[in-house]
Design a protein around this nucleic acid. Structure first.
Length: 297
DNA sequence: AGTTGTCAAGCTAGT
DNA sequence: ACTAGCTTGACAACT
């Protein structure tokens, strides 16, 4: 079981993907920023390797404005050396990475323009992973999208949009159950029409479920992954930030809550034929990842 | 140097 | 009507 954290490292200095305002866009600014971001990504991966953290989510900001028309740079060519070096490091060390495009990626939107933008954004994410020559277990995780007052129609819309995507995108995209609209069951409905693997988010499942047992939920979601192509099923983990509104992610790992979940995961792994990789969506990033490794040794 | 308004993009639920 | 939240507050203009 690999443990990971998202997007940035709080121990290392400046170890996040910096960006800038669209108004400040220039070729120079773009190149400087990308060079820096790639350099810090490699540093983060180095830190992770030393600490046995073998899973990491790459920030969508790594190439700023990559899917915007203003960006005309062939960055995958210009930074081929750096991108290859990162990809080689990941592969050499049995690491895994994923990406999670932000809320603007909505494949079932009622606006064609939004869908077009979403596809461009997905193409960009895929290009990052392709440029690192990573296999298709390096996934791009999205939500199903809006409901628009009719969930069945909205699901159909997602299925339609998804099935029209190019094959190289379909191979990378995975769908995540969310905390308010689309439950695991909804994701399974979509999966049956698209074949998209489901990344099971245990915290969202606590917020929105159909009373499945944890073992049932793990079995259903893990069954949507084709091991040779997709790698280990991914689990997103977090817990409720106490005293804050429902769905807000915890600032730091809740030890007992995590240990209980970890037991369930272990139980599932032992009786099943598959391992799992766990992404910790917790605000304090690598601190919780390190703690979780210590707790489960 | 420190503070604060704003940022490419969507949608939902809570206030 | 407005805002917090989402994978993540940081950039940039102002005081």
């Amino acid at each position: 079981m690999r443990i990971g954290y998202p997007c940035k490292n709080l121990t290392l200095e400046n170890a996040y993907s910096s960006t800038f305002r669209l108004k400040s866009f220039s070729e120079t600014r773009f190149n400087e920023t990308v060079k820096n971001n790639l350099c810090y990504l490699l540093k983060i991966l180095g830190f992770n390797k030393k600490n046995n953290i073998l899973f990491f989510r790459i920030s969508s900001d790594i190439i700023p404005f990559a899917s915007h028309p203003i960006c005309q740079t062939d960055w995958s060519h210009a930074f081929k050396t750096e991108l290859n070096e990162i990809g080689d490091f990941i592969k050499k060390n049995n690491m895994r990475v994923s990406m999670h495009p932000d809320q603007f990626v909505v494949l079932n939107s009622t606006s064609e323009k939004v869908i077009e933008n979403s596809i461009r954004e997905l193409q960009y994410h895929s290009k990052v992973l392709e440029s690192m020559t990573l296999p298709t277990d390096a996934k791009i995780q999205i939500h199903i999208g809006g409901v628009y007052g009719d969930k069945n129609m909205a699901k159909e819309k997602f299925i339609n949009s998804f099935n029209k995507l190019e094959g190289y995108l379909k191979e990378r995209i995975i769908i995540e159950n969310d905390d308010r609209s689309y439950s695991l069951k909804d994701c399974l409905d979509v999966h049956s029409e698209t074949g998209t693997p489901i990344v099971f988010d245990t915290f969202h499942h606590e917020c929105l479920n159909h009373n499945e047992t944890m073992q049932e939920a793990l079995f259903c979601s893990a069954s949507t992954w084709k091991h040779s192509l997709d790698g280990n099923p991914i689990i997103d983990y977090s817990s409720q930030s106490i005293g804050e509104r429902k769905g807000k992610h915890a600032k730091t790992i809740d030890k007992n809550h995590f240990i209980a979940l970890h037991k369930e995961l272990k139980k599932f792994i032992q009786k099943g034929s598959t391992d799992l990789d766990v992404m910790l969506e917790i605000k304090d990033k690598e601190a919780s990842a390190l703690l979780s490794l210590a707790l489960t040794k």
